[in-house]
Structure formats: structure tokens, C-alpha cells
């Protein structure tokens, strides 16, 4: 029994050593993998593919606006400055994008919300995530937002699925999306769908 165990151990050690060599080689050579997935430039290209004309705009909200937005979104607003991007094509506005960040547990996540001219969600994208990746829901979860509008269903455990072990991310991102949709709806688009 003991010889068998010693043999096993030799195999384990071989596995260990080869893994370590692999790590060293990887750390030396790989440059791709990091917590920042997309920078602003690439994110806007993703939001408005092929569009040259993307305008940057800033809203300065007033106290009354904040109240109105919070009442609609049921989410607290933490800034009165709202900078967004408008994608303009030959036939006018093709969509709006907002890039923002929020704290997940102790570290932030940076996201992008893209909406159609009717205030319908087109995509929600994570641009950077500084918490352990176990807290980040996968791509399929983010795809759920596509086509959704701001209504009472747009909450976790309603039209948005909960993810075991990623509750904070799920609640946080959904709240951010609601907030952004409310601002677009009330202050930018004004005649969107709900």
C-alpha cells in the first residue's frame, strides 16, 4: 500500500511542478486578462456600431428632478450630474448610452446601459469589475435586459432572475438600470415607452 502511495505522490508532484511552470510562463506572457473588460471608446463602438457621430451631453439635475426620478425608479440618486452619449445617424437619434459605476460589496463595478430612442433597453454591459469574479453574473444573465422597459417587473426575482451567490451584483445592477432608465425617460426622451 505504501509503495502505491509513494507512486501516487510522484504523479501529484509532477502535476504540481508542471502547473507551476505553466503559471510562471503565463504571468510572463499573457497581457489580456484583467478586470477591465472594455474601455469607454470600445464600449461606445459596441453601443453604436459603425456610427461616427456620437455626441456627449451632460444634464445638471435640479432638486425637483431628483425627487421625480427617485419616485419613478424607486432607487436613490447619488449625483445630480448625468453625462450620456447620443448616437446620431442619417435619420436622427439611433440610441442613447450611459456609462456609470456603483459599489458592489466594497469594490466598484463599471457598467454601460444602452437604450433605444423609445427608452427600451438595448443592452447592459459590464465594463470593469473589481470584486471577485464569482460575484459577477454571466453574459446570459445580462442578456435578460434586452428589450425590457421600466416597469414594476424590472426587479430581481420578477422579470430579472436571481443568481445564487451574486445577490449583491444582481440587486445593484438592476437598481442602476432602473435609475438610468428613469433619467432617460423623464429628462432626455420624455416620450418613451414604459
Amino acid at each position: 500500500m505504501h509503495t502505491g502511495r509513494k507512486n501516487n505522490r510522484v504523479w501529484y508532484l509532477r502535476l504540481l511542478v508542471s502547473s507551476l511552470i505553466f503559471v510562471i510562463v503565463q504571468l510572463w506572457t499573457s497581457t489580456l486578462y484583467s478586470k477591465v473588460y472594455l474601455n469607454k471608446e470600445d464600449a461606445l463602438k459596441l453601443a453604436f456600431p459603425g456610427l461616427q457621430n456620437v455626441e456627449r451631453k451632460t444634464l445638471f439635475l435640479e432638486e425637483a428632478d431628483v425627487k421625480e426620478i427617485e419616485a419613478l425608479s424607486k432607487v436613490r440618486l447619488d449625483s445630480k450630474i448625468f453625462t450620456y452619449y447620443v448616437g446620431i445617424g442619417k435619420e436622427g437619434v439611433l440610441g442613447y448610452a450611459y456609462l456609470g459605476s456603483h459599489i458592489v460589496r466594497t469594490k466598484p463595478a463599471v457598467y454601460m446601459v444602452v437604450v433605444t430612442p423609445e427608452a427600451r433597453l438595448q443592452r447592459v454591459e459590464i465594463l470593469a469589475f473589481y470584486e471577485p469574479e464569482e460575484y459577477l453574473p454571466n453574459k446570459r444573465w445580462f442578456n435578460q435586459f434586452q428589450g425590457k422597459v421600466l416597469n414594476e417587473g424590472l426587479w430581481p426575482k420578477r422579470e430579472i432572475s436571481a443568481v445564487s451567490g451574486a445577490t449583491l451584483s444582481v440587486n445593484g445592477i438592476t437598481s442602476e438600470v432602473r435609475k438610468v432608465l428613469s433619467i432617460f425617460h423623464l429628462k432626455v426622451i420624455k416620450e418613451g415607452v414604459m
Partner: peptide, 19 residues
């Protein structure tokens, strides 16, 4: 407003992210 946006977005606002 650009600076505020940079503060909010961090590394994402950088034109090229190098590591």
C-alpha cells in the same frame, strides 16, 4: 464633467488600458 466622468469610470475612461 469629463473629469467627473473619469472619476466615476476609472480605468474604463482611459483611452488604452495597458497592464
Amino acid at each position: 464633467t469629463e473629469e467627473i466622468e473619469k472619476l466615476k469610470l476609472g480605468a474604463v475612461a482611459e483611452p488604452e488600458y495597458e497592464s
